[in-house]
Amino acid sequence: MAADIPEEDLAETRAALAPTLAATAAILPWLTKDRPARFDAALNQRWIEAGRELARAWSTRSANAGDVVRPAVFALYGVALDSHDADCLALGEALASATDRLEGGPPPAHLIAAMSAAIECFDDVMGLEHKAFPLRARHFARRLTAAVEQPTNHQRSSLIDRLFAAEVGERLQLMREALNALPPDAVMLKSAAAQIAEQAELIELFGLMDQARQLAWRIDATTDLEHPATRAAIENDLTRISEGVAVIDPL
């Protein structure tokens, strides 16, 4: 058993540690104190609602994305103007420029990817008060600006097309199995259709994107997948997507 520490040594140790303990005790209240809000609560709520609406508009867009996305982008930009915050303003301007590019014909995949990432990131319950907001805003403002300025490359990759066709073919098979299951699996059908739409958009196959997105919209919690007319419509959608994939990769 270790020998007892002499009281004299303990007293010296306590005396040496006293300044450190006092300094720590003084800091603790500051560490536990809530960070003060950077923005007015009402303004932040407007940003949150505008971000949520932009995310909804982006998720329901068609190939002509500017029609539904532009009003939502400029609603968010309006909040940015009211914030008088440099990061908010830079992000709003970058989103507005990217939206202009959407209306100049089919947008390139890198622009779609940049907008998708930015919109998803800022659909956040903390809004402007998220501790990482300034860093995120600067990052996405730069990324969106670079995406707008990057030249569009229309040269397709046959390898990417073949990989896409193979993956979609597997998804379509699983979707047919889900439709024929008892009961039919609506969640799987809707999820797979949305994934096909997202992948098609990233490689600029906007016709397939629209077909898959329309199929995803057709299915919701109230859809009766056992009704003959509904099943026929879904089977027709699956056939049309299959035919579109066959055009891309006929092998």
Rank of each mutant, 00 (worst) to 15 (best):
A23K: 14
A197T: 03
A233P: 00
R240V: 14
F164M: 04
R56K: 06
R46Y: 03
M115R: 00
A55L: 04
D249H: 13
I203H: 04
F39Q: 01
H154K: 04
A75N: 14
F164G: 01
H110V: 02
P228D: 09
E53K: 10
A90F: 05
E204I: 11
R52Q: 12
R138W: 02
A212C: 06
L128C: 07
A192S: 13
M175C: 06
C121M: 11
Y77A: 12
E120V: 04
D224F: 08
D85I: 07
L76I: 04
D224S: 07
A192H: 07
P184G: 10
T20G: 08
V187I: 13
L163T: 06
T24R: 10
G169T: 08
E167W: 03
E198Q: 14
L89W: 02
L76Q: 04
D220G: 09
L111D: 06
L215T: 02
D34S: 12
V125M: 11
P29W: 08
V187D: 07
V247P: 02
D161Y: 05
P151D: 05
F164K: 02
P106M: 08
I48H: 02
A23P: 03
P29Y: 09
E149I: 01
L182C: 08
E103G: 10
V79G: 00
A132S: 15
R156K: 14
D9L: 15
Q199M: 13
G51P: 11
E177V: 13
A2W: 06
A194G: 06
L215H: 01
F206I: 03
D185P: 05
P183W: 12
T60F: 13
W217Y: 12
I119R: 00
R56D: 11
D4L: 15
I203R: 14
I112T: 02
H110A: 05
I219V: 15
A113K: 06
L17T: 04
G244S: 08
R46Q: 14
P71H: 05
G207F: 09
A2P: 09
L17I: 08
R136D: 11
A96E: 12
A193Y: 01
L91D: 00
L135P: 00
L174T: 07
R136W: 13
L251D: 15
G127N: 03
S97F: 08
L91W: 05
A193N: 01
G169Y: 05
D100L: 11
V187L: 11
L238V: 04
L102N: 01
A246I: 03
V148C: 15
W217E: 14
E7S: 08
S83G: 06
A18V: 07
T222Q: 13
A132F: 10
A146W: 03
